[in-house]
């Protein structure tokens, strides 16, 4: 039980997917311009992350390993992730057209979010059980959402600031991301 809790906190803070492992940087910089969009995007990504990790785990241990095809895992996972994103899109479009409008192009873009594939592969490398994979995926999803929301809030403040011309736009965004990354790396002392 304590292991799972440590795994969860570790995935949220110490091994944060975005700021420590540098996965999923495209939505991190692309969708963080407004706080509302960032929250909507992180909700959709969190859903796909958790589901994709669970399905990949089952596929790997129930199909690929018994057939001695473990080397096919990357291509198989990509297919699974793409199908899950499509499924999510269909479901959201049918049940909540308003949310579908709000998410817009970002929903299909989750397919190319490397954090989703990275999570499935990392969970395999750590040789986690099914429950542990789920917890790890939840941690990764929470970590992604937390960082995206924080970064979007910071960027909304930055728009108001008077910056030297050379720093405006992309430079200050990347500097902010770098400083946040340094901050999150400080959590590594917590892991011991």
């Amino acid at each position: 039980m304590l292991d799972l809790l440590l795994l969860l906190i570790g995935a949220i803070l110490i091994n944060n997917f975005v700021l420590v492992q540098f996965l999923g940087l495209c939505p991190f910089t692309g969708v963080s311009r407004s706080f509302e969009n960032a929250v909507a995007m992180s909700t959709a990504t969190a859903f796909v992350l958790t589901l994709a990790a669970a399905v990949s785990h089952v596929l790997y241990h129930a199909v690929l390993v018994p057939l001695d095809l473990a080397y096919l895992r990357i291509i198989a996972f990509i297919v699974v992730i793409a199908a899950l994103v499509q499924l999510t899109e269909l479901y959201v479009r049918a049940t909540s057209p308003v949310l579908y409008q709000a998410l817009g192009i970002y929903l299909p873009l989750i397919t190319t979010n490397c954090a989703v594939l990275g999570l499935a592969l990392l969970a395999l490398n750590l040789e986690l059980s099914f429950v542990a994979t789920l917890v790890y995926a939840c941690g990764a999803a929470l970590g992604f959402s937390l960082v995206l929301a924080l970064f979007a809030a910071l960027r909304e403040q930055l728009v108001e600031e008077r910056l030297p011309r050379a720093f405006r736009g992309a430079p200050i965004t990347l500097i902010t991301a770098g400083l946040m990354s340094l901050g999150f790396m400080g959590f590594q002392g917590m892991g011991g």
Binding site: I75, A76, A83, L87
Partner: peptide
């Protein structure tokens, strides 16, 4: 195997 995975997911979608 890959064809089966693709087929299953396609049918599901």
């Amino acid at each position: 195997t890959l064809a089966l995975i693709g087929l299953t997911l396609g049918l599901m979608l």
